[in-house]
Structures are given as structure tokens and as C-alpha cells.
């Protein structure tokens, strides 16, 4: 075989293998999507047939009705409230802490920085029981507060990421601004903050993914249907001992993934490119 022919074959083989693995990987998701439009009774009997005979949105209507008199509109509203309030607080606190750790020399800085790094290593299981007792004592159980308030301290992972980003901003900039009479707070809000927007956006996107999917928190702290977030509602909605309406279940699964998928599609270029070139953990 000539060199050129071999190269073409190599390229073809590459695309075939990669496409094949890719299709196998996302096939379950595709199957779920198509199944959600099938007649509910046919979902598990026509598994081999991907495309539904008749496209039907009845599953979405049935599923949206929810359970216990609460519709999925409430669950989605709750999830959005929890996620958005958490992420905003989280990003503000993370940016502030990152600035404090990188740009201000204060007593105890190194000690607390090491503390922060250690928190990344502590398994959440160690903290979960006392945290529950604290929130129980505060009377916060069955409110959104236990899911939101702790996030207002920022996350070590985000703080660390923003710090790394800030390390790329020359310190001369700070000095120049300070000589011009700019205080540290003004320097942070007017100069540093606009420069670290990419790091903040990355943190916000991952913060959204993680909070939207958070199951443990909702499971522990929310116990009445009007407070449920999507993740816990979906878990109860699809309880294997009681579920009969597979179509509605898949329909709600698809809807629950939509915010994440939409966000991902809008930011994928940025996120995937970011990780692929910088190698930050995602």
C-alpha cells in the first residue's frame, strides 16, 4: 500500500472507531429521549425500536403533574431558587477569598490557606451528621437554607482555581493602582474582578452543574413535596417499587437534564476548550 493510501485508511479508521465508541456511549441518553415520546406501555416492550411509531407528548403532560398534588413546576422552581442563590453566593465568596489569599499579606494567611486546601481532602461524610444536627437545631430542616447558606462561604476548589487565575495578573497593576490612591476594596471591585471573569464563569458553570444535580442535600433536608428539588422529586417519582408510567418517568428525566445540557451546549466551547488546553480538573 502506498503511504498516502495508508494515511487515508488510518484517518477513516480513526473516525469510524471514535464515532462507534461515541454512539455506544451516548446511546442510552438517545434512547431515553426517544422513549419519552413513545406510548408509555410500549417503552419497555419496544426497546429494540428506537424511533417511536407515533410522537406523543402525553408523557410530558402526565409527568409534569408530579405527585402528592405538587407539579414539576414547583420542583423546577425550587431547584432554580436553590441553585442560583447558591451559585451567586458561592462565586462572590470564592472571588473574595481568592483575592484575600493572593493579594493581601495578613497574619494567619498561610495557616488558613492550608486549612482550605485540607478541606478538599475531608470526606463530606465526616461532616454530614453534625451539620444535620446544627441545621436541625437552627430549625432549618425542610427549608432551602441548609442547601444555600453553606455555599455562601465559597468552595475550596473554586477558590483555588480563581487563585491560580489571579496569579497570572501582574502585581504591578495593584501597585500602580495603589499609588494612584486606589484602596484594596476598590482595586478588587474595579480592577481585579473584571479581569477574572473567565475564572468566575467557569466556577459558576461547574457550580450550577453540581448544585443542580445535588441529591444528598435534598434527601437530607427537604421532606415535604412543596419543598422538593428536581433531583429528590425525580428519585421518588421513579421509585422502582411504585413506578408504572415509564413514559412519564423518562419524560421528566429528560426535562431534568435540559438545564444542564442547554448550559453545556452554550458554554461547551469555552469549558471543553479550557480544560483541553489548560488541563484544569472538571
Amino acid at each position: 500500500m502506498s503511504r498516502k493510501a495508508r494515511k487515508i485508511w488510518g484517518t477513516v479508521l480513526f473516525h469510524v472507531i471514535i464515532c462507534l465508541i461515541g454512539i455506544i456511549m451516548i446511546y442510552p441518553l438517545i434512547w431515553m429521549f426517544f422513549s419519552s415520546f413513545k406510548e408509555s406501555s410500549k417503552v419497555m416492550t419496544t426497546v429494540g425500536q428506537l424511533i417511536p411509531d407515533k410522537w406523543d407528548i402525553q408523557n410530558y403532560i402526565n409527568g409534569w403533574a408530579g405527585f402528592g398534588g405538587t407539579t414539576f413546576a414547583t420542583f423546577f422552581k425550587n431547584s432554580f431558587i436553590v441553585t442560583i442563590l447558591s451559585v451567586i453566593g458561592n462565586i462572590i465568596a470564592s472571588a473574595m477569598a481568592a483575592y484575600g489569599f493572593t493579594r493581601i499579606r495578613f497574619k494567619g494567611r498561610n495557616f488558613f490557606f492550608i486549612c482550605m486546601i485540607i478541606t478538599m481532602m475531608v470526606p463530606s461524610q465526616v461532616l454530614v451528621v453534625p451539620q444535620y444536627l446544627i441545621f436541625h437545631g437552627l430549625g432549618w430542616v425542610n427549608t432551602f437554607l441548609p442547601l444555600i447558606v453553606p455555599e455562601w462561604g465559597g468552595r475550596a476548589f473554586f477558590i483555588f482555581m480563581i487563585m491560580q487565575f489571579m496569579a497570572g495578573i501582574p502585581k504591578d497593576l495593584d501597585e500602580a493602582a495603589e499609588i494612584d490612591g486606589c484602596g484594596k476594596i476598590k482595586l478588587f471591585t474595579n480592577i481585579i474582578l473584571p479581569l477574572i471573569v473567565p475564572a468566575l464563569a467557569t466556577s459558576a458553570i461547574f457550580g450550577f452543574y453540581w448544585k443542580w444535580d445535588d441529591f444528598m442535600g435534598s434527601l437530607l433536608y427537604l421532606n415535604s413535596p412543596d419543598k422538593y428539588t428536581v433531583s429528590i422529586a425525580l428519585k421518588l417519582f421513579s421509585d422502582p417499587t411504585s413506578v408504572t408510567d415509564y413514559g412519564a418517568m423518562f419524560a421528566m428525566c429528560v426535562l431534568s437534564l435540559l438545564p444542564v445540557i442547554i448550559l453545556f451546549l452554550f458554554t461547551q466551547k469555552y469549558i471543553v476548550e479550557g480544560i483541553a488546553t489548560q488541563g484544569l480538573k472538571g
Partner: peptide
């Protein structure tokens, strides 16, 4: 002034760290 500012900036993190990490850690 730097000490004050430093703790102002890491304040939100520090409060949550003490309340929801340090205390639960030893309580656990």
C-alpha cells in the same frame, strides 16, 4: 490595615469554614 482587609476578604469563607467544617469536624 492589611490584617483587617485580609480577614474582610476571606471573611465569608472563614465564617462558613468555622461553622460548617471546623465545628462539625470535631463534633463528629
Amino acid at each position: 490595615r492589611n490584617n483587617l482587609l485580609g480577614y474582610f476578604f476571606i471573611g465569608p469563607w472563614l465564617i462558613m469554614f468555622l461553622a460548617f467544617t471546623v465545628v462539625p469536624f470535631f463534633a463528629s
